[in-house]
């Protein structure tokens, strides 16, 4: 019995099992949890973290790190609002935001890949630079949206499900596919597993890393646009600390910080576990201050589990 338990927990699907168990328990014991309204609210609350986690997964899988995501989300949101206001066209505003996000990501990737500067340091720098840009552009204040059509991005629904949730689901599918079924995805995992061997096997390591960061920037812009629409303004101080939630969710989902190991299903579960924990604590009226402690503990437990799993794998 104990052995079966161990096998299930440390197997590939261990996290999914934990997730299903936790979900069932919470549904039974927490009032108002398993209602349509709460479920949609839960999904909406994980949209930002979930979207950014898609590409953070690639970053971590390639042994890199991106701390600038929170700033990029805020910056892109600002740009979307300001450009829409200035041009009077929402489409133009959104495009500008996507391009700006992509440029930030490209710069990250280029500096990291070509100048061989540690990703942690590079993105720590861009995190501050980009946040500074957002603050300067808005003079530190929130920027209101002129065209009410912009709100519709977050408010509109399709088959009863809000658009941002659809965007999240589509991105999950796309990036799951990219990771497993494209040369780019496989190369990402190979680069994380052994960069030098990958280079000698003909993988263009620099280009792969630049692409990863560029995609990360674009995806952050998508998250930033949806966030700005939801909070009905461009906020230069939005998404502070997002990078930590996103990395936590990825690690919780079994993405190895040492590179070379990642799975979309795991990341989805990681994102959902974090979301459920927060949702349940809100439903139970646990004060926000305690929520930090619980989130920290969940992350620690996840890393411990991951460690046990790696050593179990190593013994094969």
């Amino acid at each position: 019995m104990a052995n079966v338990f161990k096998k299930v927990m440390l197997g590939d699907q261990g996290l999914v099992v934990i997730f299903v168990l936790a979900f069932a328990l919470v549904s039974l014991f927490v009032p108002n949890f398993l209602t349509e309204r709460n479920m949609l609210g839960l999904l909406q609350s994980v949209v930002t973290v979930g979207i950014v986690a898609c590409t953070m997964m690639f970053c971590l899988a390639a042994r890199d790190f991106d701390l600038s995501v929170g700033s990029t989300v805020a910056f892109a949101g600002m740009v979307a609002v300001m450009a829409s206001n200035a041009t009077g066209s929402i489409i133009l505003g959104l495009l500008t935001a996507l391009v700006c996000g992509g440029v930030v990501g490209f710069i990250n990737g280029f500096v990291i890949a070509k100048f061989r500067i540690n990703a942690l340091i590079t993105t720590l720098a861009t995190m501050q630079i980009v946040r500074g840009l957002a603050l300067i552009a808005s003079d530190g204040r929130a920027v209101g949206i002129n065209d009410p059509g912009f709100y519709q991005l977050a408010l509109s629904k399709l088959v009863g499900v809000p658009t941002p949730v659809w965007v999240l689901l589509v991105l999950f599918v796309i990036f799951g596919f990219v990771l497993n079924r494209t040369v780019f995805g496989k190369n990402t995992l190979a680069v994380g597993g052994n960069p030098e061997a990958s280079r000698l096997a003909g993988v263009n390591v620099d280009r792969t890393r630049i692409w990863i960061f560029t995609l990360q920037g674009i995806v952050c812009a998508i998250a930033g646009i949806l966030l700005a629409s939801r909070i009905t303004s461009g906020q230069p101080n939005a998404a502070i600390g997002l990078e930590l939630s996103v990395i936590s969710a990825c690690v919780l989902g079994g993405v190895s910080l040492a590179g070379g190991r990642a799975a979309m299903a795991g990341v989805i579960v990681g994102v959902m576990i974090m979301g459920i924990a927060e949702n349940v604590m809100n439903l139970l009226n646990i004060p926000a201050f305690y929520q930090y402690i619980v989130r920290g503990l969940i992350l620690l437990l996840a890393v411990l589990l991951d460690n046990l799993r790696s050593s179990a794998l190593g013994r094969r």
Binding site: N187, A197, S198, G260
Partner: peptide, 15 residues
């Protein structure tokens, strides 16, 4: 310089 540790034989052949 050769093997990609942590990845399967299949991936190491196909890289």
């Amino acid at each position: 310089d050769g093997i990609i540790q942590g990845r399967s034989i299949e991936e190491n052949i196909n890289i």
